[in-house]
Simulated assay, not measured.
Amino acid sequence: MEKLVSIIVPCYNQGNYLNDSLQSVLNQTHASWECIIVDDGSTDETKDIASKWVEKDSRFKYVYKANEGLCAARNSGIKIANGDYILPLDADDKISENYLILALLEFEKNQNLKVVYCNALKFGQINEKWKLPDYSLKNLAISNMIFCSAVYKKSDWERIGGYDVAMVYGLEDWEFWISMLKNGGEVKKIEEVGFFYRTKEDSMVTNLNDELANKMYDYMSVKHADFFVKHLGSFKILISTIQKNNKNLNNTKFLINLVFKKIVGFNLFSKNK
């Protein structure tokens, strides 16, 4: 029996893109999937468009909820998912027809895998290959290189408590992968292009200003301080510098930033990040 993959598509006022995204799901060569469309309190035509897909194929399901943000929307869809494997897919993005089957083959070959992703292309306002750094835990401590539409096991989502709803302003994928991978597990990147990321002038990423970004960095630096210190350096090597800055001893953002500048040569919290 084929492994069931649950594809979770949160949608907040992105009905104009939803058809393209769901068509890419319908085109999958791996037939054992369900697609849960989570309407996160949309006021556009999302419900009408989603309903047509539910009528077209019973593997599509529609759920409406009050608007609480992307993390809460994903969690609500995954909570009712029947699949052993999860693939989040934003309502304005697309996947290739072979993505699911290629990802599942990787999981069959390696029982230690936690995350499978692939090469990706940007389309829309910008059309180019998405050049992502190679995965390693150290690189993950510096920045995120795994986009949201990677395949993982539902059991791992349960283990870490799902997407952190405190990440309301963005960077939620980075935080999620850190939570999932920091204590072990392997990652596989498929060399084929399997994901298509839509670029637009107005998006959650482009709207993430410095003040909001810093709030998310601050939160992550506290929650995952052990992870950042482990892979970017120990505070012990900086004790003399810290002692000269006594006023900052209780400022976790300062401490983490000090390590980052010492080890990797940049300011994580700077306005140029």
Rank of each mutant, 00 (worst) to 15 (best):
S76L: 07
K223V: 11
G161Q: 04
V63G: 00
N112Y: 06
P133D: 05
L104Q: 13
N110M: 10
Y135K: 12
E175V: 06
W177L: 11
N19R: 15
V54H: 05
A166W: 07
G83W: 13
V187M: 05
N214C: 09
N19C: 13
I7P: 09
T43L: 02
D156N: 04
G77F: 02
Y117E: 01
V38A: 00
N248K: 15
D202A: 03
G77S: 01
I101R: 12
M180E: 10
S32W: 06
I242M: 06
A150Q: 04
M145V: 05
K200E: 09
S234E: 14
S155V: 13
L26Y: 15
S136R: 08
G77K: 07
D92P: 02
L258I: 08
T199F: 14
S136M: 13
K109R: 15
V54C: 10
K3T: 06
Y197L: 12
V151N: 01
A213Q: 07
F176H: 12
Y169M: 03
T43S: 11
E211W: 11
I7N: 13
E191P: 04
S143C: 04
D93A: 13
I142Q: 13
V5N: 11
Y169S: 05
N257E: 06
K262W: 14
P10D: 00
D44T: 01
I160D: 02
T241F: 12
D57T: 11
Q125I: 01
I7Q: 09
W157V: 00
K114S: 05
K131D: 13
G69S: 00
Y85G: 07
C148V: 11
N110P: 04
W53P: 00
G83M: 06
L132C: 01
G15L: 02
I178E: 10
M180G: 03
G77T: 06
K154F: 02
I142R: 15
L87E: 02
M180C: 09
A50Q: 04
